Amino acid sequence: MGITDTPFFNVLRERMGFLNERQKLLAENVANASTPKYVPRDLDNRAFADAIARQMPQARNGLAGAAPLAPVKMAATRVGHMDGGAPAAGTGKAIKSPDSEVTLDGNAVVLEEQMIKVADTRMNYDAALGLYQKGLQLMRLASRKPQ
């Protein structure tokens, strides 16, 4: 098992994949801001919560309990192949999420609200990426020979 095949890194990869998919949907919403009868879409946040529950079943009850982390299970598809069990990106479900206003032509995109969502998604992605990088730095530090 590689150092990045831990629940910590798997959850962060899943989160970044979710945020990537959300950013694509928000870009489509902005691009269709003047399309008649267009209703903006967003990803269902429950999809990410379900992905976390798949990776870390004990997360439903909170991580502060005494229950240890479940080990990552390896699944081999062929002899000699190893799979870290990382969930596939794109597990989010797109749902219609109309903004606060609808124009006379039926378009429900409010650019200000979409840009707030884009900025929020970007900040969350940057935070997840920062945690991932710090986790890798900690793993490298822990694997170094003591001086």
Results as ranks from 00 to 15, higher is better:
Arg54Cys: 00
Ala89Thr: 11
Leu104Ser: 11
Ala49Phe: 01
Gly62Ile: 08
Ile116Trp: 01
Ala53Ile: 00
Ala53Cys: 00
Ala75Trp: 03
Ala142Lys: 02
Tyr125Trp: 14
Val79Phe: 11
Ala142Asp: 02
Met139Tyr: 13
Gln114Trp: 07
Gly84Leu: 05
Arg140Leu: 14
Lys93Pro: 00
Ser100Tyr: 03
Val109His: 07
Val118Tyr: 08
Asp126Pro: 02
Ala119Ser: 13
Thr121His: 04
Val118Ser: 11
Ala108His: 03
Pro57Ser: 02
Val72Arg: 11
Ala94Lys: 05
Ile52Leu: 11
Lys93Ile: 14
Ala66Ser: 12
Leu129Tyr: 13
Gly92Val: 03
Ala94Gln: 06
Gly106Gln: 02
Leu131Asp: 02
Ala119Met: 13
Leu69His: 04
Ala94Pro: 11
Pro146Tyr: 11
Val118Ile: 14
Leu138Val: 12
Asn61Lys: 12
Ala94Val: 05
Pro71Trp: 07
Arg144Thr: 08
Ala128Ser: 14
Gln114Tyr: 05
Ala127Ile: 15
Gln137Val: 08
Arg144Lys: 10
Leu129Arg: 14
Ala66Phe: 04
Tyr125Ser: 10
Pro68Ala: 06
Ala59Leu: 03
Pro68Cys: 02
Gly65Cys: 06
Lys134Cys: 03
Ala76His: 09
Arg54Ile: 00
Arg144Cys: 03
Gly84Met: 07
Pro146Ser: 12
Met115His: 05
Lys117Val: 09
Leu131Ala: 14
Glu112Tyr: 07
Asn107Lys: 06
Tyr132Arg: 07
Asp105Phe: 03
Arg144Asp: 05
Lys145Tyr: 08
